[in-house]
Design a protein around this nucleic acid. Structure first.
Lengths: 338, 338
DNA sequence: TTGTACGCGTTATCAT
DNA sequence: ATGATAACGCGTACAA
């Protein structure tokens, strides 16, 4: 391995000069700089990040904690994080939790030991989170992504409003028997907020939620569970799903019952994963700017870091969402409607 | 921040004893160990990873370089990597390249500067790769994922054989006019290997490839491009796509032309992304064990590291793939067949 | 069993 | 403009 020492020897200067050549180029004579640069190139010198961060107390690394990369929402977000971080000269260190609180916490501990400069977190629920307690106690700069909570800096969309808007859209198409499909609401604040948006939307339209919420504990066998639920009559004319992954499975469930989408039943998602628009039928959904949520999280964090400050609740950003009407929704059929 | 020094003072012992308490527990008296552990817990001591890796020359960190997380294949793989790494006490540091060689290289340079213990790479083409030259020159332990090449340690499936098998399956259904849809073959060795598998499969069946290969440079407007291609008569009765993302778009293209899948045209993918089986029609595909490819990469790497060796070409693993017949493929219709 | 002291590769302070 | 050197936090030979 080539170190700053070897470069110094090779160039016939002191280590201090080599260091300056890279960190404070204008503080070194143009000629000597050339010499050093060439020596460094010859030895393929690459500064040792551990030594640097030990010395500077900054790692140029951002920790990321999210539930799972098997949901494209978070994969797209991490892609945005990766791009923005790389562009700013930062590395990232992601951990996945599979929605397990224990893993949230151990991930943050590992990240702290690592000395990350900041944290981007998607936590289960910010309201009672040992993870966040720890982060605050250690005074680590952080941003929450997708979560929204008054007491923390959050990059998110207005989940209740967005979900209510989806309901309003379906109502405007003529739907009245609308049922919601949700994952475990205890898994995340998003699930809860979307549910409250559902209730608000229905109330605003003067409607009662159609039958109990269809709660799908495990997404693996979601199709079967939705098939079950759809067999109760009267059947809803529209299904609003808590996320796109669930919506895709709901569409499958409908087909298994011989129902056409959207002719016999409308189905909507939430998240705006890229694949949604290429499906057939394409997915009516609330599109969140997933990559941007990641990018903004990075830039907010980095901006604060450069100022020696850290993001507070007032730095929260509510990004725009877009209701994307697509082929999976349509007015209810006459036969079933009423 | 609490350091080993402070813990030592708090416990009334030397720093060496504190260090040993965590790294060589049996070399320290049970009583003093208790005292140290309690002191450490009281101060919420977490060892500084930079200092440790500077000292030990090992970072307990694995670098990962892959094209993009917007393709679920790589997202699922990274999920597997993240799980396996965390379980083994390693952190990961991923970079995305967007299929750009420049970024492949700069990622690896950054990772090297960081002092990662090993590298998991999905490169464009191992045959002529400045990235791999650098990695070898620096003597960094590495594994290639998805790539397959005799001169490198690779975790992958037999792409040509798998693709040929897909062709054979369609032929067995009665298809004869089979066309291939591919991304830019210059983008990756996988694309090339799958294409050669296509040719081999067709030859083995005594068939000519139906019309020229449908090459889709950019996946964003893939649907339009496939629509264009499908308008030439005679139309293929089956479309074999180079990956699942392309297949999903091909299905959409078919629908736009009023073709039913699989009644009027069969469409197959490759990769086995999880979503595929929940689509309607569900996707006939070659299913790769994406998460396992990640997990095996990690364990191979870590195993070698613990032995002080590094993976060589002979450590390559060819994992099993599974042909998954599903709803997007069926025998050709009588009208169009022949 | 425990403590002392050096060095890992940098950056930054203070001289020159 | 450049050089010598201390310090970042830790692990480990070596000494006690």
């Amino acid at each position: 391995m080539s170190t700053i020492q070897k470069v110094a020897k090779e160039a016939g200067v002191s280590v201090a000069t080599v260091s300056r050549t890279f960190n404070l180029p204008d503080k070194v004579n143009a000629e000597t700089r050339k010499i050093v640069e060439q020596a460094a190139a010859r030895l393929r010198y690459i500064p040792n990040a551990s030594a640097r961060s030990l010395r500077t107390q900054r790692s140029q690394t951002l920790g990321v904690v999210l539930p799972t990369l098997n949901n494209p929402v978070f994969a797209e977000c991490l892609q945005g994080i990766a791009q923005a971080a790389a562009a700013a000269g930062y590395s990232i260190m992601p951990f996945t939790t599979d929605y397990l609180l224990k893993q949230e916490e151990s991930a943050v501990r590992a990240l702290h030991g690592f000395g990350v400069d900041g944290l981007i977190l998607v936590v289960s629920d910010p309201r009672a989170s040992a993870t966040l307690d720890f982060v605050r106690e250690q005074n680590i700069p952080y941003v929450l992504a997708y979560n929204s909570n008054d007491e923390h800096p959050c990059i998110s969309v207005d989940n209740p409003a967005a979900f209510a808007r989806m309901v309003a859209y379906l109502v405007s198409l003529g739907h009245q028997r609308i049922a919601m499909v949700s994952g475990r609401r205890s898994d995340s604040d998003r699930a809860q907020q979307r549910y409250s948006g559902f209730l608000a939307g229905m109330t605003a339209a003067g409607l009662q939620p159609h039958q109990a919420i269809i709660e799908v504990p495990f997404i693996d066998n979601a199709v079967d569970q939705i098939v079950q639920a759809l067999q109760h009559k009267p059947r809803p004319s529209a299904l609003v799903c808590s996320n796109d992954l669930l919506a895709i499975r709901a569409i499958r469930a409908a087909h298994q019952l011989g129902l056409r989408v959207p002719d016999d039943i409308s189905i909507t998602g939430f998240d705006g994963i890229r694949l949604g628009q290429d499906l057939t039928p394409s997915l009516t959904t609330i599109s969140q700017p997933n990559a941007d949520i990641g990018r903004y999280s990075v830039s907010l964090l980095i901006q604060c870091l450069s100022q020696g400050s850290k993001p507070g609740p007032s730095a929260s950003l509510l990004l725009n969402y877009v209701l994307c009407p697509a082929e999976s929704s349509a007015p209810p059929s006459q036969v079933l409607g009423g």
